[in-house]
Amino acid sequence: MSGLLIKPAAPAFYSVRRYVWHNKAAARPTAKEPNPIITWNFVARIRPFCSHFFSTPHRQIRWSLEVLGLHPDYQGKGYGRELVDNGLLRAKNDPAGALPVCVVAADCKEAFYLKVRFNEIVGDTTKTVGKDGSDNPLREKMLGGGSGFMDEVK
């Protein structure tokens, strides 16, 4: 029961916290960049440029593997594969049934995800423009990565 109360309250708490205790390392709005990309607005700023990748009926309900990263000293030792395999196994054993799994790859990591059982690149968030012709902030800043992968878990 307490989990039901905490989940909706958490975003409000963190919004107030960000307002009261500013992150001094975060990008600040400027005249040139009134709405800079930061951790708290990243998804909202990017969603219009990639939501169509995940909007088909069989992809609307899915598992997402997020923030899978390894320190370079530990790369190439199988830890990344273990993380992905664990995520895929959890999705496969979901009580709701086997759901597709998605991941958005960082720059130059597409080969890794193709190697660890992801079989379909559904798009690249850094190469899209808005329906109204607006430029994608990732593309505008010439940031790489953003390939969306899907794996149909069976």
Rank of each mutant, 00 (worst) to 15 (best):
R45C: 12
I6Y: 12
I6S: 13
R59L: 12
P29Y: 10
R18H: 13
H22Y: 06
C102Q: 07
M142E: 12
W63E: 06
R81Y: 01
G78F: 04
R17S: 09
F49A: 03
G78L: 02
R81S: 07
L88F: 03
M1R: 15
V103C: 04
V153Q: 07
I38W: 05
G130N: 06
G148W: 15
N119P: 00
L138Y: 11
P137A: 12
N86G: 07
F149I: 09
A96G: 03
E140N: 06
P72H: 11
A26N: 09
P100Q: 06
K115G: 06
T56S: 15
K141C: 05
V116A: 02
V84N: 05
S64R: 12
H22P: 02
V20D: 09
K7Q: 10
D132P: 04
H52T: 07
G69D: 05
L65Y: 01
L83H: 00
Y74G: 00
P95V: 13
K131H: 01
R18C: 02
Q75C: 05
R59G: 00
A27E: 14
V16Y: 12
E66S: 10
I37L: 15
D135I: 03
E140T: 05
V101Y: 02
G69R: 12
S2Y: 08
P100D: 03
R59W: 11
P57R: 10
K109N: 14
A31P: 00
R62A: 04
D94C: 14
D135N: 01
A111R: 14
V84P: 01
P57N: 05
L83P: 05
L114A: 09
N41R: 07
R81Q: 08
V67Y: 09
C108L: 09
T30P: 08
R47D: 14
G144Q: 06
N41A: 05
L143F: 08
D94T: 10
R17T: 03
P8V: 11
F149T: 08
R90I: 09
L138A: 02
P137H: 08
K127Q: 14
K32E: 14
K109S: 14
K77L: 14
Y19E: 08
A9D: 01
N23Y: 11
V43G: 07
E82N: 11
K115V: 00
R17Q: 15
I61N: 08
A106R: 07
D132Y: 07
L88E: 04
T125F: 00
V101K: 04
I38V: 15
G146H: 06
L4A: 14
A27Q: 15
L114Y: 09
Y79S: 00
Y14A: 03
H22L: 13
S134W: 00
V153K: 04
G80M: 03
L68Y: 00
A98E: 08
L83A: 08
V103T: 03
T56N: 12
A106C: 10
N35F: 06
G144V: 13
T39R: 13
G144P: 06
E110F: 05
G145P: 06
R81I: 01
D107V: 04
R62S: 03
G144S: 07
R139S: 07
G97L: 04
P95Y: 02
H52V: 02
P48I: 07
D107E: 15
V43E: 13
P95N: 05
V43A: 11
D124N: 15
F42K: 12
I46T: 14
K154L: 11
I121C: 15
R47T: 10
S51G: 05
D135F: 04
F118P: 03
A27F: 03
Q75F: 01
T125V: 09
D73H: 10
I6P: 02
R90G: 01
R139H: 05
